[in-house]
Write a protein that binds this DNA or RNA. Structure first.
Lengths: 201, 201
DNA sequence: GTCTATATGGGGATAGAC
DNA sequence: GTCTATCCCCATATAGAC
């Protein structure tokens, strides 16, 4: 039975999931506006018209990429925070998870979420903002814990925005072949944000 | 005598300068790819075809906007660093100038430089990179001075990238009607980066 | 589900008059 | 310098066959 394209969340369909992953890479590399549906069709071995069986229109592909980027990062962060014991470890988790989601291999969707926001229509933004706020809430409570423990300063809302901005920008200059691994970079960044790991006393 | 469009640097022509300023605002608000030459023509009261008397093609407009954004910010920073006395004052100048260039009224060109990089062709990038490197060199030497004075840590190259990333991201969330002035925000950011202003001893 | 074929519109850019 | 008129291409999206 023919059906109309599913909502962004439903990634159970593996064909659709593959399209979203490929689109994420193309949108990251070339930008959303410069990537044509023909480009995407070529990359997955479909005629451009066939894409519209899976998605109502091009924007729906963009929204699906963004939703994937932010939800998968949120899940990974929630799991890492679950494991972290100290406030210090939690802040470390924020930076490691976020940086790996941005810079790790086969990671492109989160970067699209960050840098193609302007191409999302007003109708589609609210749904994505909900997802983004959920992610930032994890950050905020981890930072608030750290502030309560004296690990970071009190201006945690601005701190959250500055640290996230620092990490986001890394996509512009980080080169995987340039020395630091992603996790090594995360450690250096952590030290600039929070200072060296406290020793047991 | 008819002439062909001048290189990006030559902003002496006031008509051209006006076009560049208007284009900066449009590109910032709608994105470069989504802004049509017809949009720009409407905004300045010209037919779209007339724009091509002033610019060889659309990309030349983008490059001119970017060159304006980075060179004017560089000039302002150089002047501010000239006046600053202490390493602390110099770091303060970095943040205040950059933030005002990004968020101040009638400021749009620097933001375009930061967020539309992918739309610049390989041929045009080198010229802009030279301008960007000149700006970042001012940052680097100010931060190195601060490190030598013990005002910031030693990892100044990463610090430069992180602080610049923090500032760049502010365009995504700062609202002029939302409380802080640009300079007040700059002060709060400075304190997170460097701590409170040292008192005379 | 994917194809072929195509509708439809808008994009950048040019020519030549004024 | 700007206008009018228009070329030409390529974008998204649809229709209907298979």
């Amino acid at each position: 039975m023919t059906r109309k394209a599913a909502p962004p969340q439903a990634e159970d369909n593996s064909r659709r999931a593959e399209l979203v992953r490929t689109a994420a890479r193309l949108f990251r590399d070339q930008g959303y506006e410069r990537t044509t549906v023909r480009d995407l069709g070529n990359a997955v071995g479909l005629q451009s018209g066939s894409l519209f069986y899976h998605f109502r229109n091009k924007e729906e592909i963009l929204v699906a990429v963004m939703a994937l980027g932010i939800t998968s990062t949120t899940e990974q962060l929630a799991a890492a925070l679950e494991v972290a014991k100290t406030p210090y470890d939690k802040v470390s988790a924020l930076i490691h998870v976020h940086l790996n989601s941005l810079l790790g291999e086969n990671q492109a969707a989160l970067e699209v979420m960050l840098y193609e926001w302007r191409s999302v229509s007003a109708e589609q933004k609210p749904g994505l903002i909900v997802l983004r706020d959920r992610y930032e809430a994890l950050w905020q409570s981890a930072l608030d814990e750290a502030a309560a423990a004296g690990v970071v300063g009190q201006d945690t809302r601005l701190l959250r925005r500055m640290v996230l901005g620092s990490l986001h920008w890394s996509v512009q200059w980080f080169r995987r072949d340039g020395g630091d691994s992603v996790d090594a970079l995360a450690e250096r960044m952590l030290k600039l944000v929070i200072g060296p790991r406290p020793q047991a006393d």
